[in-house]
Write a protein that binds this DNA or RNA. Structure first.
Lengths: 221, 221
DNA sequence: GTTGCAATCTAACGCCCGTTTGAATAGCCT
DNA sequence: AGGCTATTCAAACGGGCGTTAGATTGCAAC
């Protein structure tokens, strides 16, 4: 039983570990894990790269931890969405929306893109299985939507690929200090992408600042 | 005036150079340019990595050449689509469809994803400008579609991000030896994604093999 | 055959970056 | 104050990979 005033050293460790994962995730999601050096990650945190090794055993495990975290967020978002009432399409919408918002909040980056080649070893297989399970459950939601009439007849695999492409791509162009809030981005992108699946879409979309402010945006191709 | 029987040595050079770019593009689009070694590229072509240097000055220029090629294809697809009759949405559909089909045919990979961090130097600025120009013209097509009523009122930037996300993501999961032909993939993904922009979608989609064949697909998250 | 050029190879060089080592610093307990 | 532990750092080590050098092979011209 620890007093709040006396910080638990183990908890301190965990806080710093999370900070490292967060910093790494932000760098990885844009540049790809292989082109990010531990020096890059350390500089974001204002420490030397050697200091990282008190919290992580090596770079590969850091990559795994990032993927693990992102997949946990995705899985939890999916679970929450499934537990709520609504059509298959509504659940898909909610799960993707939560995924974007939670990754931004917890990792500081909207979605974490996996390069499967970056994964090796036994843990890698676990991550891949986790990802496959997530995508599989998403496809089931599509099938559910087809059955309940909220989604037009589509190939579930293709539909999920399309949705995840639109959603994961956000990581390439979203800027925390940009014009749009996380909520605006999540609602607009998910709203648009899922509209593609409506049998006869009637949903309207919030329109955000149609006038183009002359800002120099460097975003991904 | 060369005879067909006597191959022009300069042309031979160019053919091999193109083969290198193609092999590199396939590797880059999946793994990211930074995690692909020149040995990887050389092995795909059955030569040693030193042999590559007769055709490219260095790795960075190879990355640039891949981006250049992909952007040329994208730009030409856009130009062809614009020159044809039709609504703004129809032009967007056509340009994206051609982009996927042409990159698969010419580069052997559907879309080439840019990691802007991989680019350096003066040529890099040229590539970024080319990409910005392409995206800007895409946004204009969205505005055109809004005006002619083929597209519902949306923020053009977001709409283009959503479309390009769905389209570029194909590079992560498409397999040449897979279940779907390039045409099927292009039609389905572009058909789905652009449906999101229809004011009141009535378009139907071809449905391909809804039954799931028990194939083990390893695709990107 | 011999010469010359093009193409490719193997082997080595050197830098970058992940990882380790050992010392320096800062807080906490008695 | 003095020791103990937890953190952090600068510096060095070592492997991987881009790049270069020099040798080898193959082919065309004469």
């Amino acid at each position: 039983m620890w007093s709040d005033a006396i910080p638990d050293p183990a908890a301190q460790q965990e806080i710093k570990r999370k900070a490292i994962i967060r910093a790494a995730a932000q760098a990885f999601s844009r540049q790809g894990s292989h082109s990010v050096t531990l020096d890059d990650v350390a500089k974001r945190l204002g420490v030397s790269k050697a200091a990282l090794y008190r919290y992580i055993p090596n770079k590969h495990s850091l990559i795994l931890a990032c993927q693990d975290e992102a997949l946990d967020i995705a899985g939890q978002a999916l679970a929450r969405a499934i537990s709520e009432q609504g059509t298959g399409l509504a659940k898909i919408r909610q799960s993707l929306r939560l995924y974007l918002l939670d990754t931004i909040e917890q990792l500081g980056v909207p979605a974490l893109i996996l390069e499967d080649n970056a994964l090796r070893g036994d843990d890698a297989a676990r991550i891949l299985q986790k990802r496959d399970s997530y995508e599989s459950r998403m496809r089931e939601l599509v099938s559910e939507g087809c059955a309940d009439g909220s989604i037009l007849p589509v190939e579930p695999k293709m539909a999920v690929f399309m949705l995840l492409g639109a959603v994961h791509w956000v990581a390439k162009w979203y800027r925390p200090d940009g014009r749009w809030s996380p909520e605006t981005v999540a609602d607009t992108i998910v709203g648009l992408a899922t509209r593609a699946l409506e049998p006869a879409p009637t949903s309207t979309l919030a329109i955000h600042l149609p006038q183009d402010q002359a800002r120099e945006d460097r975003h991904a191709f």
